[in-house]
Design a protein around this nucleic acid. Structure first.
Lengths: 338, 338
DNA sequence: AAATTAAATTGAAACGTTATAATTTTGAGG
DNA sequence: CCTCAAAATTATAACGTTTCAATTTAATTT
């Protein structure tokens, strides 16, 4: 280790320039090619990406900022994002900021100091100044699951409105009218979109909107648990619930178990996101699957494209379709099994 | 952006060397200090970590390899690891390899190419050749939750044997003798240690070991679900179960709910790891909490120490104590509530 | 076979830092 | 005010690449 291109050049009897050209895939005479190749193998040469980065002002690294490393939805997307960028020899610096905006700011600064070639931001990172600075420095930014108002960036989102519409519609089609929603965080981009889909479905089918049925669980399991408990304490409790994320679903199911409510006999359920425990829950849940693979891949592809300087179709507003997976958690209201 | 030390030097009317010395905190004359400081502010100079890295052969980056970004236990540790290293201005390249050994190899190569100053490996990364290569290249390695046989590395583990002993003992103390264990993956370092604690507790209290009560759930919720189902189908089912990780606990609880078994009336439970849904499960579970904060912090501290060249007490075998958190999931066997 | 063109290679100057030897400035002592 | 040491600063050579003008080598044409 520690062998440089200079060593390789000497060993092969050519100049460093030639070695460089070999490394970067430019054509050179057969004979030199062989000599260089052998020298590299014999010396175990590995190029120094740092020196390379200094020269071409590229770090071959992208920065990824998520709210929390422990949020499985984000990390699943990141996994596929990484798979996409590593194909082009990029690596990733992954940061979380644990909902601390100051920390978020520091992280973005940090990535910029590290000369990342591009940045992927996840929902909630609405630190406009930082984003603006990145873009002024010509560091492309792709935003996932969000939309930074007032700043034009490429973004990748699922079709939240459509998905929620169809989820709600699904409940309506099986006869429900008392349909509740356990939504994320009030005002949040995703939550607003999902709410819009829900409302629009109810409107379409002329069902009156009952504010009591609209709850916010802050994307957490404890939130989901509490919302479900509260919903069932309404004078006229819902016969079905639409839950807009993974953690809240876990919480709601825990509440349901505790209350000894049977699904779908007493309550129909449709939720967002596939998660591991799903395979194991009985009855199987009907849910909307967000194609995390595709989200990560798209984000990666767009970012790489921008990094290469291709600014066509900027800003892209990529909308990814979801898929509804049918389980057995929905039945007509007020019907007993037999 | 784009301004270099040269620009600062010119603007301040000093040489680049002086600017460098300012940046790195060496003493210089008051007057020059002020001039440089002003110039930096006026030009918005930011040092180029890449160039710096090239010169001092340090990337100020550590590599972290975990099995999967979606494994919450690992990512929780990584979160605190990151907090530790960022205090000293290090950043982290986080990789997962999704149980693909070839991918693991590539990742480690990758980190080495990126000139990381140190590496943290999580359980299962027993790619001896790669680890050896890292160490030969004087890149310090800290291993978490594992022990690479035949290679001396610093490592950080919880006291698995002790924790499992006490967990099992706890069940024994409340009168159980038919105690099952749902363990991770057979042969795995952690699983073996936890099994050892279990066996040793039974031996200590003269309880015969029943092989039927020892199950492997591969750390997955589906595994935990299946194990629990199987255990209850024994001719003489256990009255209590010790579950050695988070995901398997989730699976087991799902099975328990499905079978309408009441805890702790029909079955006592003790498990490993705190997780979000825990706050919400009734009855509250008794569990062993692994101090993920401390694990990450220790790993970070040891690695930084090695990076600084301090090899004292090498190889460290750090054992972190766990804590038992009392819930209401344990009761004497065969006793009904009232 | 000479002349022309094309292709391949070389050598040296960058990239933005740090380290070091050489130089200048400062300050104390006589 | 000169000398000499100590302190501070400067200029320059690295670090390991890439790039580009200049040069050499090879291929083609006449």
């Amino acid at each position: 280790m520690g062998t440089t291109m200079k060593d390789v050049a000497r060993h092969a009897g050519v100049s460093v320039g030639t070695v460089s050209r070999y490394i970067n895939g430019y054509r050179l005479k057969e004979i030199n090619m062989k000599k260089v190749k052998m020298a590299i193998e014999e010396l175990g040469f590995k190029e120094n990406i740092i020196a390379k980065g200094l020269k071409n002002k590229r770090s071959m690294t992208i920065g990824v900022v998520i709210a929390s490393l422990t949020d499985i939805f984000s990390t699943t997307i990141v996994t596929s994002l990484e798979k996409t960028i590593e194909k082009e020899n990029y690596s990733m610096m992954l940061c979380d900021y644990n909902c601390n905006l100051d920390r978020l700011h520091r992280k973005i600064m940090f990535l910029q100091d590290r000369m990342v070639d591009g940045v992927v931001l996840f929902a909630g990172n609405e630190n406009k100044e930082d984003v603006r600075r990145l873009m002024n420095n010509e560091i492309p930014v792709v935003v996932i699951d969000s939309n930074i108002e007032g700043i034009e960036t490429d973004r990748v989102n699922v079709d939240n409105v459509g998905a929620s519409f169809r989820a709600t519609e699904k409940l309506i089609h099986s006869g429900h009218e008392r349909i509740a929603v356990i939504n994320g965080t009030k005002g949040d981009f995703i939550a607003e979109e999902r709410l819009q889909g829900y409302i629009s479905a109810l409107n379409t089918y002329d069902i009156t909107i009952n504010d009591e049925y609209i709850r916010y669980g802050n994307y957490s399991s404890i939130g989901g648990y509490n919302c479900l408990m509260e919903l069932l304490e309404c004078k006229s409790p819902p016969t079905s619930v639409f839950i807009t994320n993974y953690y809240m679903t876990i919480g709601a199911i825990t509440a349901i178990n505790e209350l000894d409510i049977k699904i779908p006999r007493h309550l129909s359920l449709i939720c967002f996101d596939r998660f591991e425990i799903m395979d194991v829950i009985k009855p199987s849940l009907t849910f909307i699957e967000q194609p995390t693979d595709r989200i990560g891949e798209m984000a990666g592809r767009i970012l790489l494209k921008r990094i290469k300087g291709d600014m066509s179709q900027f800003p892209m507003d990529m909308r990814i379709n979801t898929r509804m997976v049918m389980g057995k958690s929905i039945a007509p209201p007020g019907v007993t099994d037999h």
